[in-house]
Nucleic acid binder design. Structure first.
Lengths: 365, 365
DNA sequence: CTGTTAGCGCTTTCAG
DNA sequence: CTGAAAGCGCTAACAG
């Protein structure tokens, strides 16, 4: 009567190893856990027994008694998005190097999902949490405050949250955005479209209203908008609300909005696209009108990729240090787990404008 | 003497809730855990007490006694790669919908990393594991056998492993590859380059040697090569080892290899690229030689994206149902966790050839 | 229907 | 230096 295919044999416990080695449970635990003193001979016997039985520590049980799970929680908008995927890779690599695994949850920009995700992570007793939060107002961060209150350190990544004084790792969105727009202005453009604005139904008529709308949405978008405005102001280029995209943030809608900007009596001659899909949407709108770049329209976009480099002509793009962004966040968190006083400061990483060939002077009238 | 900023107060336990409600621990556990019978009145009191104390169950402790962690483990080559990121998103969404979270580990195609990752997951007592394995030979799957032996169900995703009789979810790589190459042949091509072959140093001289080399590497690559060969055979187009790329699988090397194929006395007139970077590498090689598609060279590649659609002309690409791939794997695994007899079968999802404008007849001599 | 009791597997005092 | 014993927070028999 061989193999009883039913319940596989329960994995060996530390007690069994101790028994096999003929020592006390504590002694086995000490050698296997690598703490406390054990005489070489006993240690040897325990190790042999463990080896023989194929012993592997039950991480759950260990976490139960130590209160440490060696697991980090990560909350992002969408793990399927290449930007977050790259960032998560940075987080995983950095934490893995220090003995931590990660459990990542996507929220799809839904605050309730974010709250639920944070709760799940706390329940699973992660040692710390890294969040790219969709929260903006003071009243939208109670889940983060709760985590903190329960002793779970949190570091913010990619998106700062004004009302929270926490370690935060972001990219200098505003500065690169300004640099990009300055590049466009330097080439002679004064009608520069901003593609991927706040998802409001109606275009805010004033800068103030626009900024207010942006303040209620994703932090990075607002910063990029500010950088755009900074460059305009510095150069004395008038701001025109008709040149900023509003509405749903989808490739399709970007195509429509760019179409609109291209149909304006005094049309856009350059576009600053703040997201990959904004750029591809813009490209579609151009194709539909048989317009080409940089002749008819100059282009600069966010998030460089291999594709942008092989476009014809190659696209001038902003490259974000995605991996480092994640790695830095993990390191800051891990440092604070290892006792370093949390500095509660903002770490800003620099993005880089990769100049290629999608910018030229505006077409002569 | 206000807030003692040191140790935050330990979160309330079920015993405290029970005490607060003036009932036994078990009663509190039953209502909070949602099992067994509890009278409405007591239930009410427990709920109130839990609410008041801000009670949240400790998932670790729960897992300890139930032996179920409601966590799935995922092992992929690289979470930062858009293909795997999309697949992981499918896995996460599907498992989240059924109450499971996931912890994902990247191996970077290193078998030792894969073995270590699997071990970590088992130690953390995940309820099941989904692996896109780099293993090929019988002797490379002992870690998977070990998991199975310990009662941890495993499903294979994206890559089948011949020596393992397990539930497997893959895409019909061979069929679409054949379809793509047939499309090229139908347009009149007979000199079709295969970009991204097995990473061997020297080009295998014979088909047999080539296939053998492929069999020792990533499963999907081998399948795509077979599809390529299938199409050639069906059409009676002779196989030429000079038309298959060998060496490291990097964009740079793809550029070199395509350059070589383009310099052949009887040069390639079409390319079948089995990976995104193979395509961008090919595009770079073409640019360097001022060649354009589809006039000088026809192109078909794997892994469609928004970029491929906005290239000029738009690229004919193979679209893989990445999310569904992951979702299906999660479902199969979850089903078996819920007791369904594992079917140990292979589920094949269909990829789709998205015909655009990168294929034309070969240039006249 | 409810409370008591005994673990899950490991760490951690605390004597010896 | 080693072993016995208590306990982490929860579930699960088992009486009552």
């Amino acid at each position: 009567m061989p193999a009883d295919r039913g319940r596989p044999p329960a994995p060996p416990t530390i007690s069994e190893v101790a028994a096999e080695a003929g020592v006390g449970r504590a002694t086995a635990a000490r050698t296997l856990g690598g703490y406390g003193y054990v005489s070489p001979e006993l240690k040897e016997r325990v190790l042999a027994a463990a080896e023989k039985l194929g012993y592997r520590a039950n991480a759950l049980a260990r976490s139960m008694s130590t209160g440490v799970s060696h697991t980090l929680g990560v909350v992002v908008a969408d793990i399927g998005n290449p930007f977050f995927a790259g960032m998560v890779r940075g987080i995983c690599d950095a934490s893995r190097a220090r003995g931590f695994d990660t459990i990542v949850l996507s929220t799809y920009e839904d605050l309730d999902e974010e709250i639920a995700a944070t709760g799940v992570l706390i329940d699973k007793r992660v040692d710390g949490v890294i969040i790219a939060s969709a929260a903006v107002g003071r009243d939208e961060v109670t889940h983060i405050r709760t985590a903190l209150k329960q002793g779970v350190p949190v570091v913010l990544v990619d998106r700062a949250v004004g009302s929270l004084d926490l370690d935060t790792v972001v990219i200098d969105n505003r500065d690169v955005a300004r640099e990009a727009v300055e590049t466009l202005i330097a080439a002679g453009h004064r009608r520069i479209g901003f593609v991927w604005g706040p998802p409001v139904a109606q275009a805010p008529a004033t800068r103030r209203a626009l900024l207010a709308a942006a303040a209620r949405n994703v932090w990075t978008d607002g910063e990029r908008l500010r950088g755009y405005l900074d460059a305009l102001d510095d150069a004395g280029v008038p701001f025109d609300p008709e040149l900023v995209m509003v509405g749903p943030k989808t490739e399709e809608h970007a195509t429509e909005e760019v179409g609109r900007m291209l149909a304006l009596p005094h049309r856009a001659t350059a576009l600053f696209c703040t997201e990959t899909d904004a750029m591809t949407g813009a490209l579609r709108a151009m194709r539909a009108r048989k317009l080409s770049y940089p002749g008819d329209l100059s282009l600069i976009g966010f998030d460089d990729s291999a594709w942008a480099a092989v476009m014809d002509p190659p696209l001038t793009m902003i490259e974000q240090p995605v991996r480092r962004l994640g790695a830095k966040a993990a390191e800051v968190l891990l440092d604070s787990l290892e006792g370093a006083e949390p500095r509660r400061e903002t770490h800003t990483l620099q993005a880089r404008l990769v100049v290629r060939s999608s910018v030229a002077p505006p077409p002569a009238r």
